[in-house]
């Protein structure tokens, strides 16, 4: 347990509660099997003894938070469609709006945005959507656009299901048009993310409670630095970022204090 907690904190700033043995078992059992070990103990022994980057990252990636669903907290998406994107589009002077769903797991969050944009394009605007996660395997699943019957029933309306999906051999496949509208990057948010450039809207909901205090500070600074002038950051309920204030009229959305003054 200590080894898992130490590696997760060192590599990705993740805070693993030592009490949550079941979480470690649930997450690491499939990884141990995939890597050809007969038990989690054997897998952890190999991680400790071999000191192989590939095994260490298999562990850390599996332990990173994965909770996601389509249109999670639907009121957030309603505000994005009705207010956030139209406001950003008005100020963009015709350039494409850049949107980043950070720590997007298996892609439901960023695909929800893509569906929204295809249904209600903000007048005259084009968009660049980027989804990122720490976990390579989750990104592979996201890119495939394949979701199980259980996954498409969490947050996705039947009207959106028939509009944007096709039946697949197992489950449902997102339409190529929606799939191709998203770019994917593997990003460790505790490292330098300057190469990502600046974004008009960044969503990173529900990650920071899973981080160590030092990592939380670093990740939030990275996310704030990734905002373009007037850019908006959406965190989960109860999460805050130093230096950011509530965006006017947009409950749950944050922006830089100086941008808010300039927009007033």
């Amino acid at each position: 347990m200590q080894l898992v907690a130490r590696l997760c904190a060192e590599r990705a700033g993740l805070r693993i509660d030592p009490e949550k043995h079941y979480l470690v078992e649930n997450r690491l059992a499939p990884v141990a099997r995939r890597e050809g070990f007969s038990s989690i103990e054997e897998f952890l022994g190999a991680v400790r003894d071999r000191d192989e980057e590939r095994l260490i990252w298999a562990l850390v990636e599996a332990m990173s938070p994965s909770e996601t669903s389509f249109f999670r907290e639907p009121e957030t998406f309603e505000l994005i469609a009705q207010k956030v994107l139209p406001d950003l589009a008005r100020r963009s002077e015709g350039r494409p709006l850049r949107v980043w769903a950070a720590a997007c797991g298996t892609g439901q969050e960023v695909y929800s945005l893509a569906m929204l944009l295809s249904e209600q394009p903000a007048a005259g605007s084009t968009f660049e959507l980027t989804g990122s996660d720490l976990c390579e395997r989750r990104l592979e699943k996201a890119q495939s656009g394949l979701y199980s019957q259980f996954e498409v029933q969490r947050g996705l309306s039947a009207h959106r299901l028939v509009r944007h999906f096709e039946n697949a051999e197992e489950g449902f496949s997102l339409s190529p048009r929606i799939r191709s509208s998203v770019r994917w990057r593997r990003v460790n948010l505790v490292e330098d993310v300057g190469r990502m450039g600046r974004f008009d809207l960044v969503l990173c909901r529900g990650l920071t409670p899973h981080l160590t205090e030092a990592a939380r500070e670093r990740v939030l600074k990275n996310l704030v630095d990734a905002l373009s002038t007037g850019g908006i950051l959406a965190l989960g309920p109860g999460e805050a970022a130093p230096g950011l204030v509530a965006a006017p009229g947009l409950a749950g959305f944050l922006m830089r204090a100086e941008d808010r003054r300039a927009a007033a």
Binding site: S157, A158, L161, V162, N167
Partner: peptide, 15 residues
Amino acid sequence: LERIREALSAGADEY
């Protein structure tokens, strides 16, 4: 999905 479309067209609100 064809059957789900049929249900929605007939007036179902959700599925």
